[in-house]
Every structure is written in structure tokens, then in C-alpha cells.
């Protein structure tokens, strides 16, 4: 069985945020939630300014604290090393969010995709509402991707958490996660950590890699190489 992991080449990353947008498209992620996210920081004063940008996502830790914390086993490790979530088992206790050191798990406090369920005019004094657009599109949301339903709830209902799945619905068919596929700079590389000939092993060996909060011992599997 493979042990999937990701390398993010910060030197190649342009900070365009395409990963965050396309992830929403692929996984029907609602407003305010970011399975694929980024943080940035500007330091110094002109002309000596430094800008840092770091894409973030679930680290699919080998020793995942969210999996340990879940009282019902709804958060679990798949055989291929991906950390997955079972919406049918989830009780919405948010223990995983408390345990997760990276802030990548989101809780559906309300009914998801409020905008597309609302009959209020989308634009003030306009004529069309989010619900009308969704109805015309014949889908829960206009950009709904039915492929997501293959392995996870297409849209996660109110009362449960959700998170990045490394696009397990694509990976199981031999495809790459959509953020990897859509990165215009080719900054994301996905592969098998246990395969000594994989590209990610080559890159980690060549450049040395940094993991977020590695000191916590969660063994995160998103590796950052070089710098922005």
C-alpha cells in the first residue's frame, strides 16, 4: 500500500491562491471554509521588505492527533496513509478541531452553502437570488462536483466537521489531488513516501524539507522545500 504525502516547493509557488480556489470547486467546499488554504506575512519596512507565503492544508499526519481524539472513530487513517472522515459516524463534538494543531478542520455550524439556499437577491436591488441560480443549474450549488460523492458526502451536512481528503476520490482512480493538478507553477508534488524512487522522496532528499510544527511529533506528511 502506498503512503501518500505531498511536497510543496515554495520556490516555485507564486502565491496565486489557485490551490485554494480549485479545491473549493472540486470538493464543493462552502464559503468561509478552506480545505486548501494559505497564510502570508509581510515583514520589514521599505525598501527592506520580506513577503512570505505558505500554502496550508491537512497534513495527513502519520500520528494524527485528530484521529486519536475522535471519540467515535469518525476520523480515521486509511490504509494508504490519508486521514479521512466518516460523516455518518461524526457526532459533531469538535474534539478533532481542538486536537488539530493546524486549524484545517471546519465545523458546519449552520446549513452549508447558505448563499445558494437563500432567496434574497444576490445583489442589492437585483432580480436574482442564489437559490434561483442553483435551481436553474439543477444542482445544490452551481459549481457542484458530483465526483466528490464517490468517497465522501458531496456536501457535508450541518452538525459535522469536514476537511481535506487529499482528493481521495481522484487518487483512488490514479489521479492527483486537484490542487496538485491545478497549480499553475507546478509547485505541488504528490506521491508515495514509501517508494524510494518517487519524486517526492527525491525532492525531500535533494532540498531537505520542513514540516509544520514537526516538534509536536504528529509526523505531518506535507513537506515544504526551499523558500518563497
Amino acid at each position: 500500500m502506498p503512503n501518500y504525502a505531498m511536497v510543496i516547493d515554495l520556490h516555485k509557488c507564486t502565491g496565486c491562491g489557485a490551490c485554494a480556489i480549485t479545491c473549493k470547486n472540486e470538493n464543493n467546499v462552502q464559503e468561509g471554509f478552506f480545505w486548501s488554504n494559505y497564510v502570508h506575512k509581510t515583514t520589514g519596512e521599505f525598501p527592506n521588505v520580506r513577503f512570505e507565503f505558505m500554502p496550508t492544508l491537512c497534513n495527513h499526519c502519520e500520528d494524527a492527533p485528530c484521529v486519536k481524539a475522535c471519540p467515535v472513530g469518525a476520523m480515521y487513517k486509511d490504509k494508504n496513509g490519508i486521514t479521512l472522515h466518516d460523516p455518518e459516524k461524526c457526532i459533531g463534538c469538535k474534539s478533532c478541531m481542538i486536537a488539530d494543531p493546524y486549524g484545517v478542520i471546519y465545523f458546519n455550524k449552520e446549513r452549508p452553502h447558505k448563499f445558494w439556499n437563500s432567496s434574497e437577491n444576490a445583489i442589492h436591488n437585483g432580480t436574482s437570488s442564489g437559490k434561483e441560480v442553483a435551481d436553474k443549474a439543477g444542482a445544490p450549488i452551481p459549481y457542484y462536483n458530483p465526483e466528490r460523492e464517490k468517497t465522501y458526502a458531496g456536501i457535508r451536512p450541518q452538525g459535522i466537521v469536514e476537511k481535506c481528503t487529499f482528493c481521495d476520490h481522484r487518487v483512488k482512480d490514479g489521479e492527483k489531488p486537484y490542487c496538485v493538478e491545478s497549480c499553475p507553477a507546478g509547485a505541488r508534488i504528490f506521491g508515495d513516501l514509501d517508494d524510494p524512487h518517487s519524486e517526492i522522496i527525491y525532492l525531500i532528499s535533494k532540498h531537505g524539507a520542513k514540516q509544520l510544527k514537526a516538534e509536536l511529533g504528529t509526523k505531518p506528511k506535507v513537506f515544504y522545500i526551499r523558500s518563497y
Binding site: V72, G92, Q158
Partner: peptide, 26 residues
């Protein structure tokens, strides 16, 4: 009442996770 799915509270009894503090707490 703090749970997202309060009715599923009962499942904590038969879906015991030994590594979860909350599971023991139940």
C-alpha cells in the same frame, strides 16, 4: 446540546476509541 449531532451521542458507547480522552470520559 453542544454536539452538532446530539442524537448520535449514544454512539459514543459502542464506538469506543481507546486513544480518545473523550471516549474514556463517556
Amino acid at each position: 446540546t453542544e454536539l452538532g449531532k446530539p442524537a448520535r451521542f449514544i454512539t459514543t458507547i459502542f464506538r469506543f476509541n481507546p486513544s480518545s480522552v473523550m471516549s474514556w470520559g463517556v
